[in-house]
Amino acid sequence: MSFLFARDGHLLELGIDGLLAEELSAAERAELDQHLSTCAACQARVDEARALMAQPLPALASHTAETEEIKPPDLEQEWSAANNNRLWVATGVLLAVAAALLVVVLPSGSQPEAFTARGGELSLEVYRQTAGASQLLLDGDGAAPGDTLGFRVRLSEELHFALVGADSNDAVYAIWPPQGGSAAMGPMQAPEQLAAAIQLDATPGIERILAVACDAPFQLSDEQVLSISEAGDAPQVQEGCAQELVRLDKARP
């Protein structure tokens, strides 16, 4: 399938991208050149794109951040931290498209960054919400007191899904579905925002966020959630489940 031309016969943006990235075959390039020779509008778009390409790019900050921070937190140290008061909320229904985010209050403290892990059928993104922006958090990142965390989930097919958390005081709480248990969701081609969020308190330690997706309904026990090992091995819920774990270090800015 060629991505050179749009339905109206003019160049697709992807066609221009292919040209600028020098990815086109000789035949495609000839076709494109022929069109450009007769279409001033498309030639102007190509010229504009070339000018933009010539501008300097900002440094790839997220890459630097990620490669540095992908090291897991020192769980041994943090595991038995202090106590956390967890208030949580949760809520609503899926999909950011419509819903106002309900926030929750949890405990914790530190400073976050990056994002998550991903499995074959399930991907989870944890991000810090700030006014008008969101910042993805990676497993092993820090988190700050009062941080509000939001979540995006993608499921490759309809699965039973649960998102739970455990604070540094080993209190386990449900994030999605808010009432606990699991809920049928998916498929989602792109990650969708859950209408639930949590807010971290200032208690130091590791906040563990675990997403599980299974073929059949399931109920996570506190013991299963708390059995997450120091190495980050998530509990075996049942056969055929995908799971993603994100640990946030509330003591590490």
């Binding site: 943006e13 600028l20 990235a21 794109a49 933009l52 390409m53 501008q55 790019l57 790839l60 890459h63």
Partner: peptide, 18 residues
Amino acid sequence: IDQLYRRYGPLVLRRIRG
């Protein structure tokens, strides 16, 4: 990723600016 960013970052930025 660095190579990818250098080569394709401008294209991605162009799309984003839309």
